[in-house]
Structure formats: C-alpha cells, structure tokens
C-alpha cells in the first residue's frame, strides 16, 4: 500500500497532527510493506519539508505557490487529489483539524473514495485497514472498512503518537499543479488569530469552569490556574450560553471534542453532553462541592469542596511545584 499523509502547516510550521498522520502512515506501511509520501502545500514550505523524514516519510512532495499561503478549500483539495493520483497512493491520511475536516470530504469526492472521519485507531487486517471511530460523541465506537480502491481517513489529533525517530531526512520533490482562478473559489483572505490563545482542541492540559464558578469575574481564577499549568481554558455550555465565556471554549457534544493528557473540571456537573466531549482525556480531575455530581464517576481524581477555596490553594501548590512563584 502507498500512503499519502497531508502535512498541515501554518506559517511554514508543521502542526503536531501532521507528524501524527505521518507516523500513523509509517506504522501501517511497516506492516503492509509500503511507502509513505508526505505532502506539504503552501508558500515557502520547501525549506522545512526534509524534516518530515524524521517522522517517517520517505519522500516529501512540496506544492508551492504564493497564492497558497492561506488555506483554500478548493485549491488544496485539487492538489491533494492530484498528488494522490500521481503518487499512486491508495490511502490518504489527513489530520481531523479545522483544516483537515474541511479538506478531506472534497478530496474523497475527487478520488471517488470512501471517507472514514475522526478515527482514533487504524489497524491492518489481511489486506484491509480497519478504522475505529467514536460515534454519538463517544457514547459508542464503530469499526469500519472502506471498500473503495482509494481510501481517505482523517485522524483525531492528540490520539496517535508523533515522536520523531532516527529516520533520515525525506527526499523532497517539487510538484507543479496548475491552478486557475476558479480553483480558488473558496480561499481564506485573512486569518485572525486570538493573541497567543491556546485552543482547547490543541492543548495538552485543559482547565474548564462550569456554572459552579458563579459568574464571569471568577474565571480569573480558572485562567490563573491554566496559566500556571500552561493549559487552555475550557467551559461548559451553561457558562457559554450565559455569555461568561466565548463559545470557542465550549467542550462537549455541541462544542469541541478534546483528548488532552489532563482535564480539570471545576464547578462542572458532568452532564452527558459535556462528558461526550472530554471523556477520552487521559486523566480527569473533578472539583465540585456536590459529592454526587456525575463528573466524579469518570474522574481519575476528585476533590469534594468549594472551588473558591480549593482553586487558589491549587494555584499556589502548582506554582510551588513548577517553580513559578
């Protein structure tokens, strides 16, 4: 099998999920005896492309064009599909990020390929790849097989390993794909990045506050704890709906699905829709004054008590441990 892994980058820095899809492709290729080609699209990505070798790609295909500096749904889809055909890839792996989720369905249509989205595991069985993916926001898991000759999978970030190995730098091949005005029918004009804000979808530690925080002003405490831990701030829907926090922080079935190493839920009851978005976190800490709150049923570590006393003490203790004060 030949694998094509989409190496997502922003501002010519590869995103961690790019390394995860390359490493996943490498693992499958080692079992099926195949090759891994990574694909980097952008403007000025060539210089960083060889580093993809260290993550398991034999070859890095680079498609460069000044107009590709920002993401374009239509142009990127054409490039990924054309390169997949040129490289005779049977399996295309794409990160299930904001960009990858937008891109993969178009790529699948162009390649007449079945699509398995947001997969959390891939395994080889005979000559097939079986994908596992959560459905109903993690309330059930399915195993699926894609029956078309070309297969596209998106992989949930933070679930697959991404470590650099001792592989040699990838051979870089420049590929020219001719693009017309029409190919840029949907193209990003501008990116507004919230200043240095760590997103819950990318964070390794998340500190979430719920209605138990009593009001928006008390989220300062949540932010301070997050700062001390280098974590992102998350929120329950109750506090987002109340306007205490922006909705891009909402975790849960109608918010973001996250799987950090550590999820700290403070004053969050643990409604089924909230659990749906965070129950696959490696470790869960719950701080709640109600010992019967459902969040304790899935918490690795629980503390029963008033958040207004516990959180300041926790901030101090963390700062002491991490030497920040």
């Amino acid at each position: 099998m030949r694998f094509l892994a989409f190496a997502e980058q922003r501002e010519n820095k590869f995103k961690k999920p790019a390394f995860e899809v390359i490493r996943a492709a490498r693992t499958l290729a080692d079992q099926t005896g195949g090759e891994v080609v990574a694909l980097a699209i952008g403007s000025g990505v060539r210089s960083v492309a060889p580093t993809l070798g260290g993550h398991g790609a034999q070859k890095a295909v680079v498609v460069e064009n000044p107009k590709l500096e920002f993401y374009s749904s239509t142009a990127y889809a054409k490039i990924v599909a054309d390169v997949a055909r040129q490289q005779q890839a049977n399996v295309v792996l794409i990160p299930a990020t904001a960009m990858g989720k937008d891109l993969a369905p178009r790529v699948a249509v162009r390649l007449d390929a079945g699509l398995g989205t947001d997969c959390t595991a891939l395994r080889v069985e005979g000559s097939d790849i079986i994908a596992t993916r959560p459905v109903f926001a993690g309330k059930a898991l399915t195993d699926l097989r894609v029956n078309s000759s070309t297969k596209v999978f998106t992989l949930r970030p933070n679930v697959f390993t991404s470590g650099a190995g001792d592989e040699k730098p990838a051979d870089v091949e420049n590929v020219d794909i001719s693009l017309t005005e029409q190919d840029f029918a949907s193209a990003v004009r501008e990116v507004r990045q919230a200043a240095s804000k760590l997103d819950v979808a990318e964070a390794d530690i998340i500190v979430s506050g719920g209605r138990g925080m009593k009001g928006p002003e008390h989220f300062r405490m949540i932010e301070e704890l997050a700062e001390a831990l280098g974590a992102a701030v998350g929120a329950s829907r109750a506090v987002v709906d109340a306007g205490w926090r922006p909705h891009d922080e909402q975790v849960g079935q109608t918010g973001k699905t996250v799987s950090p190493s550590l999820y700290i839920a403070i004053g969050v009851s643990g409604a089924i829709q909230h659990l749906a978005g965070m129950s696959s976190s490696k470790y869960i800490v719950a701080i709640n004054k109600d010992k019967d709150a459902p969040i304790f049923q899935i918490a690795s570590y629980g503390v029963v008590g008033d958040a207004f006393e516990i959180v300041p003490a926790l901030i101090a203790e963390v700062r002491k441990l991490l030497g920040k004060g």
């Binding site: 004009r189 990116v191 990045q193 997103d199 990318e202």
Partner: peptide, 8 residues
C-alpha cells in the same frame, strides 16, 4: 479554526 478565525 484552532485559536482563531479565518475570513473567507
């Protein structure tokens, strides 16, 4: 998108 918005 992660940590921001894109204008299209």
């Amino acid at each position: 998108i992660e940590g921001g918005h894109e204008i299209v």
